[in-house]
Design a protein around this nucleic acid. Structure first.
Lengths: 372, 372
DNA sequence: TGAACACCTGAATCCCTCC
DNA sequence: GGGAGGGATTCAGGTGTTC
């Protein structure tokens, strides 16, 4: 069986497997702080109290409907708290969780997440392009489901591939409402009798966006309510490791077969648009050190309304203000901050050229020097 | 002052007024089971930290008002439970409530609604066509807010004008996700200094849909967080009675002046389609909902030989014939069919302008709002 | 009189590394 | 852990001015 050895504790994590059993018990048996991302599609059928992990021990024949409701909500809340606590223990400090639900359960899940110290990052609306209509005409067509994205806590440096998602969306930053069709056709897994193998199979497109957005290749994605394994299938395609937990033998069988069928995409296909923040930092002083700009040379602001003089230590002096390219720019503009690299320009043959060109040259040389 | 005498108890309800004070205390002073619909836009408990600047260094005008500050989730939950209990007491047995919120608070509100015995009917997503972007590229654009629609209890025979909403949506069943622009431009009320009078004024189009869908003319609509009075303004336009409760003197002053300005629509415009309609394509109802054309406004045929009046649900009435823009046009022309979009014109500054212009505007917005 | 352009703003839990 | 500092980061739509 595949496993992953965790550095410090010399414990192993069973990856790319489907673990059998109750998700809370199984999660409690895994090493803490070992998971990068959890995707959870928990049950929300409040009527089936007995199916929940810890059924309410009070007798169900309550005085009236209200008490019955309270009892079932309380049981559902206990179940939610328990599996969320187990999930939170497994997350790395910078880990995150997604939970999907409908109005029947998502409000309770969201409140429980907040109560346990998770930090909500976004709620995302999956807008179904082909929902089931409301046949009786008594309500609005229930055309969406809600996903909550939360980091382990407020301080977590969660993963978000902003540029990749922006690229997915034709250059516009991705919004919190996602239009995706429900899972039908060939993607919908059927059992031997030709019936759908699982009542709520999620579309791969949804998991694709989730996993692409909030994990990196090689990360471990855990799904405690694995079902037919959409999370695992997409994780594998995208070069992530997965751990599935599923109680029902029938679903495990379907998922196991599905995992074997799935092919991982080419590594080159898994590369996504990166962020500039990840680029190596170049001190402006290097530009002077290398003689790309000389001490005493004048720089001009982006609108050519201000100028400053380069000093030997890589600082600027302009208008009696000394400091970094950023500080002097910010001061001259009266702005809280300024990116000096894009703000300042030098003159060559009468034309203004951004100093960022020089940074790019230095970065290119750094790349050449790095062993491949 | 306007009042409404309630049949059985011979108590009076102060309608079409803005009541001053804490909403819980004021609600507790009103007669129980007297309200048809409550629309509530409670504080969101945003928990904002430091300042936020746009990439152009301008500062975002944050919602940091004292009324949005709560010490903890527990404090917010207490507040929520208390105002919901007071609200529930006021509702008629078949009454209903709408609450709007964001991911900061809506999960707690939804859970509290369920805990108190309200019966959730739908969660509705207001997809903003022009949301504020995420400036730092750290999350998804927060492009929606969530509304919860709930009846007083499971047995309530709540009001839902299914056919009216379907007509508003040009023959297609209304879904749980609504694309509407945020409140800007002339609709956004400014104070004497030219600043926005309220940080979170809601668009009239949103209230138009809510009130049209879930009340009948003559119903009483209560808004316990009245603000600048969008709920009251739309209720009055649509021939409903309103009760506003607002603690802040400054907001009351703005709302009072606004209520006086608002005109009730023509009675004939308020009648709502009771019959099914043919299947058109683009919702003319949105033109009305967004205020591009007002209920009661007259449209003129292409040769200016016929005219018709716009109704609140996006249908027309002309020459005793009611129906879609296409149906009424066809009838007046004695033709088997008619493209209402090119047939009808509205008058601005004495000139006739095709309503197709308005459709083009909406299409552009919808295209832009659609994530890919 | 338009077209083009500049400017402003919206319920926002909005950076990250190094010292 | 707090503070300092480099430097990365935005979309739609309305209003008003210029050409």
């Amino acid at each position: 069986m595949a496993t992953k050895t965790l550095a410090r504790e010399a414990v192993t994590l069973p990856v790319n497997q489907i673990l059998a059993g109750d998700c809370i018990e199984v999660m409690n048996g895994l090493p803490e702080a070992s998971i990068d991302l959890i995707f959870a599609d928990p049950p929300y059928n409040l009527q089936l109290r007995g199916d929940l992990h810890r059924p309410d021990n009070s007798k169900v024949d309550a005085v009236n409907d209200h008490w019955d409701q309270f009892a079932s909500f309380a049981a559902y809340d206990r179940f939610t708290r328990d599996w969320l606590a187990a999930a939170r223990r497994l997350l790395k400090p910078n880990g995150a969780i997604w939970v999907i639900g409908s109005y029947h359960n998502i409000f309770r899940v969201g409140a429980a997440l907040q109560d346990q110290g998770f930090w909500l990052l976004n709620d995302v609306v999956w807008r179904k392009s082909n929902p089931m209509p409301n046949f009786k005409g008594k309500r609005l067509t229930n055309a969406h489901e809600t996903l909550i994205w939360a980091s382990k806590d407020e301080a977590s440096k969660y993963t978000f591939n902003y540029e990749a998602l922006k690229a997915l969306n034709e250059g516009i930053q991705m919004r919190s409402d996602w239009v995706l069709p429900i899972c039908t056709g060939h993607e919908r897994i059927k059992d031997a009798a030709g019936d759908k193998a699982h009542p709520t199979q999620k579309p791969e497109s949804l998991l694709h966006r989730v996993i692409l957005a909030t994990t990196n290749p090689g990360d471990v994605v855990l799904d405690p309510f694995f079902g037919t394994g959409t999370t695992g299938a997409v994780a594998k395609m995208l070069g992530r490791d997965f751990i599935g937990i599923e109680r029902e033998e029938a679903y495990r069988a379907v998922a196991t077969e599905r995992m074997e069928r799935v092919r991982r995409y080419d590594a080159s296909a898994l590369e996504v648009t990166g962020s500039k923040r990840a680029e190596p930092r170049v001190p402006f002083g290097q530009v002077v050190e290398r003689g790309m700009l000389r001490p005493g040379e004048e720089l001009f602001s982006i609108g050519n309304r201000h100028k400053a003089k380069v000093r030997a230590d890589g600082t600027l002096i302009g208008n009696d203000v000394k400091g970094s390219i950023h500080q002097v720019g910010a001061h001259l503009e009266g702005a809280p901050s300024c990116n000096g690299w894009t703000y300042w320009h030098f003159k060559r043959d009468g034309k203004l050229i951004s100093i960022d060109i020089l940074r790019q040259q230095i970065r290119a040389e750094m790349d050449d020097a790095r062993p491949h």
